[in-house]
Every structure is written in C-alpha cells, then in structure tokens.
Write a protein that binds this DNA or RNA. Sequence first.
DNA 1: GCTGAAATGCATTCATA
DNA 2: TATGAATGCATTTCAGC
Lengths: 158, 158
Amino acid sequence: MAETGMDQIDRRILAALQTDARLTVEKIGAMVGLSASPCARRIRRLEAKGVIRGYVAVLDQVKAGLPVSVFASVKLERQREEDLDRFAAAVARWPEIVDCYLMTGPRDYLLRIVVRDLEAYEDFLKRRLTRLDGVASIESSFALAQVKQSTCLPLSEG
Amino acid sequence: MAETGMDQIDRRILAALQTDARLTVEKIGAMVGLSASPCARRIRRLEAKGVIRGYVAVLDQVKAGLPVSVFASVKLERQREEDLDRFAAAVARWPEIVDCYLMTGPRDYLLRIVVRDLEAYEDFLKRRLTRLDGVASIESSFALAQVKQSTCLPLSEG
DNA sequence: GCTGAAATGCATTCATA
DNA sequence: TATGAATGCATTTCAGC
C-alpha cells in the first residue's frame, strides 16, 4: 500500500484547498483546529512533497466558448516503448487534448479532447490525430453534457 | 456559434490563471500589457460572469495515495428524465466519482472513478454502482498511467 | 510542533485623467 | 476605461513554550 505520510489534519487541509484555493490559511486553520502559522507550514510541506501540484483557475467550458468534449480511444499499431513515447509527446504538444490515460484492454489510450464545435473536432481529427505515425484506429464518443466535474479527490483515509 | 464577449486580453488572462492561480494581478497585467487595477477588474468580471468557476488546488493522485483511475461506462434500462435525474443525484453524492459525462451512442454515461486500489474499486462497484436502481450494465476500463492532465482549455480564439 | 504578535507584501479602492 | 497612490488584509517570520 502507498505510504503518504499524511495525517488526518493534512487530508482535511487538502480537502479544503481542493474546494477553494483562495481560503486564507487562518480560515483553513480554524477548520482543522490549528492557528495560521502551523497551518501554513503544513501547506508548504505538502507543496514541497509534490502532493499539491499547483493552484489553478477552473473555467466553465460552455461559458468559455468551448462546449464540446469528445472522448477518443486510440489503438496503436505497436506498443513498444518508443511508440508510446512518440504518442505521449504528440499528446503533450496539442492543447485540445486535455486528458490522456494509458489504458488496459484492447484500446491503448483514452483521450478527452475539448473543442468549440464538431467542425473543429473533425479538423483536429483529420489534421492531427489520424496523421500521427503508429495510430491504428480511433473511436470517438461525444459528450452531450458534463454531469459532474469534481476537483476533489476522495481523501477520506490514507 | 457561442458568443463569449471576451477579447484577446481576457483569453490571455484566463490562460495565465489556468496555469497558475497564484500569479499576482500585477504580473498577469504585465503579461497582457495592463497595470494591476484594470487587470483585476477584468478578472472580477470573468468571475462574475461565471467563466471562472473557482480556484482550486490540483493534487498528484499518486502522491495523495489514490493512484487508481477507472473509467466506467454505464447503460441505463430507461432514459426518461427521471431516470437520468436519479442517476445524476447518485453521482453527485459519491466522491469517488470525480467526472461524469452524459454520452451519445449506446452507453449512457462515462464515469471516472478514483480509488486507492482495485479492492476499493470492487467495493465501490458492488456496494454502490451495481445497487443503483435503473442501471442495466457497467463496463470498467482501468488506467495504467495518466499521460496528460491539463488544467488549461484551448482558448486560442473565440 | 504549536502559539501569538509584529512586519512584509500583495490586492483593492479611490481620486484623477 | 487606464493609472498610481493609499489603505487594508493575509501571509510569513520570529520569539517563546
């Protein structure tokens, strides 16, 4: 099992920051039963250990003018390390791909691609994904709506 | 096409905040060619319009002790509004489900579920998902690795 | 490792153009 | 609608326990 070295207070601090990163250390401290300075120290330590990767603004996809999410599952012709590396490099390069997972099972990757409309997706598919060396097949599924997007991992224990 | 009412400066501010929400308004202003106060005003306006949903801490799933992501595609027995609503309510209730999309095609929902290990997933499946009324079938695919997780939407134009 | 107080630095507000 | 100065507040640091 993975040892995280965190106690219950750390997890409660993380839960608070995953909900609202603008909370003051004083308020977070009050939530977890600590005063400001030790609370700040714990947060710095979680940052230094890399548990906290960063702080970001979360946008509304629709209001930002990018309402369409497409899930594309990709199968490669070969799964040698160099094939995987080349695919990962392309994925990192293209901002339309917002999420990418290496998967078990018959399909190698699952991507989430964010675009303005279906025409933009067609364009991305034709000019980018299908032109990439080593891609054997792509299956696209379209999201009609985002039912839930949580920024909080389920940290109840550890 | 969706009218966002944003100009190029707004988009560049959003790009900066999606990368690092801790940037000072002064630095963001410098990036986009504005001084602190008008830059702050634009940010408040984007918050008020709901383009910016909030500010959150992003965690490293592995270092937080929750290394496993499972994608589950769910098919319901019926797709009446009340069936969809009931499913959405359950999804909102369960913190293990971090993402949920209503999909086109033969499968109704795509979920991402985050757990500590496969045993925890089995537990979640048996005690929660499969027990939910109206669920016809569930197909699970496991992520071996997270190749990319971007917090930035591709805002290049709009 | 926590507390509480003092100091630093940033965001916000306001007067001005 | 932008600027720049002044105010107010959060974070950080430090002395003490």
